[in-house]
């Protein structure tokens, strides 16, 4: 009984998440990151005269570099808090989680802090990416014969 009352009081004082606003902001920010990616892709393939698959590598490295730099400078955290999934779901979120973990845990030492914790947040993406890609690769290998 007391527990229910307590939960009710907590629910009343919880800050109301503005779901519609969050959804619109993340849609627009995520879309702009996508447009930036396409713009960089065309820029690199035009000016460096390389194939679009090579330009895609340049584009991803650029986005990762920018996200890491902005995280290190300190204002990317505020942007992520505002735009949420708009910056977490693109590749920028991967770089952000890695850089913020690296900067945060460096004070605990280079091996036990930085080395042990750099994959703390990004590790799940790599783990489940590899496990699922391995399983789907096996499935595809036997279905299509490794084409």
């Amino acid at each position: 009984m007391e527990r229910k009352l307590y939960e009710k009081i907590v629910m009343n004082h919880k800050p109301k998440e503005r779901r519609l606003r969050n959804a619109i902001v993340s849609f627009i920010v995520g879309g702009l990151v996508g447009v930036l990616g396409e713009f960089l892709l065309e820029l690199y393939s035009y000016y460096l005269n390389i194939s679009s698959s090579d330009a895609a590598v340049f584009m991803m490295v650029t986005l990762i570099f920018l996200a890491s730099l902005f995280t290190a400078l300190g204002f990317f955290d505020k942007l992520v808090n505002k735009a949420r999934c708009g910056l977490i779901v693109p590749i920028t979120g991967f770089a952000h989680s890695m850089t913020s973990a690296a900067i945060e845990f460096r004070r605990e030492g280079f091996v036990t802090g930085l080395g042990a914790n750099i994959f703390k947040l990004a590790g799940t993406v790599i783990l489940y990416g590899i496990v699922s890609a391995y399983i789907f690769g096996i499935i595809r290998y036997f279905l299509l014969g490794g084409i």
Binding site: G30, V33, G34, I91
Partner: peptide
């Protein structure tokens, strides 16, 4: 094009 390579789905 590039818009499909930016989200984390393209990593998988």
């Amino acid at each position: 094009g590039g818009g499909a390579l930016v989200p984390i789905t393209s990593f998988g």
